[in-house]
């Protein structure tokens, strides 16, 4: 009798299973989409590095059978920037949560997008800080209940696609944990796109966010996505804010060309130094990575 094997055991660290995520949590689904996207994008797995910050989604790096870096809270993007610039042949993915990337790491997010560093940022948005027990964050809709907004959140949340586009990202999309196929396709496109690509994944946090707001379990949340989702690739990112239990617009909103940090650096130095300058990371460039 042959031993049954997991279809993703070449991409996931099976020796680290079971994972820490709760039943009904959306992170596992997002990781599945990520693993499928890595296969679809046909990038040699040895050339991929995944970087996470801190939080529930921050644990993603640790479960991927790739070169993986579990860094400090908020600093996954600058760490990934260093990794990519030091070895331009790598495909670098930052996989982390909304609090990590947009609150404590928000400054790095906008600057990496502005520079158009050739990295992929996959941000799982579950509307709260889950690892620490469900506090409000930069994406918590008004007036959701969290442990630090016990009377309902009253701060205006960020719309992540708008922030990403406004900061200069060349690829911006948003899907939910329900849209596995479309999410996988977007992640694949992002991986193949040169420049700063951003994919937001709306995901349930049944243990904390849903429970405190009496929204039912993970399945209930997926039903909500099903009922309230509008797919609109042409949507204006200025109008993509997410209200409490309101409709969520998803789609592939931005796909544009802009020189990456490395392209701009090479162009500038070639202009200035001419033949004396040896373009940096030339090999990767020619391969079209």
């Amino acid at each position: 009798m042959t031993e049954a094997t997991h279809p993703m055991e070449n991409i996931l660290r099976m020796d680290r299973m079971p994972h820490i995520w709760c039943p009904g949590c959306g992170i596992g689904t997002a990781v599945t989409a990520f693993a499928m996207a890595l296969e679809k994008a046909e990038i040699p797995l040895d050339n991929i590095a995944v970087v996470s910050g801190i939080g529930c989604t921050g644990r993603v790096a640790g479960y991927m059978k790739l070169d993986s870096f579990h860094t400090t809270h908020g600093r996954a993007i600058p760490f990934a920037t260093g990794l990519k610039l030091a070895n331009p042949e790598l495909t670098v993915i930052v996989f982390s949560g909304d609090g990590d990337l947009i609150a404590i790491g928000g400054n790095h997010f906008i600057h990496a997008a502005r520079r158009n560093v050739d990295i992929n940022v996959f941000c799982l948005n579950n509307f709260n800080y889950a690892m620490t027990g469900g506090q409000s964050g930069p994406t918590t809709p008004e007036p959701a209940i969290t442990t630090t907004s016990p009377y309902g959140a009253f701060e205006h949340p960020f719309s992540l696609p708008f922030l990403a586009e406004g900061s200069g990202a060349v690829y911006v999309s948003r899907w939910t944990a329900l849209h596995i196929r479309r999410l996988t396709n977007s992640m694949t496109e992002a991986l193949q796109k040169r420049g700063f690509s951003f994919v937001e994944i709306i995901a349930p946090c049944p243990t904390l966010y849903s429970r405190r707001n009496r929204l039912g379990d993970g399945l209930e949340e997926l039903k909500y996505y099903h009922d309230q989702i509008v797919i609109d690739h042409e949507a204006d990112t200025r109008e993509l804010g997410i209200g409490f239990r309101d409709q969520i617009v998803v789609g592939n909103f931005v796909d544009r060309e802009r020189p990456t940090f490395m392209d701009a650096l090479n162009t500038r130095f070639t202009e200035v130094f001419g033949k004396k300058y040896e373009p940096y990371g030339k090999v990767a460039h020619e391969n079209g990575n």
Binding site: F69, T72, F79, G82, L83, K84, A86, L90
Partner: peptide
């Protein structure tokens, strides 16, 4: 953070 990343990137 970038310096740590750079080091793991081999520089």
């Amino acid at each position: 953070a970038a310096v740590l990343g750079g080091s793991w990137g081999g520089k």
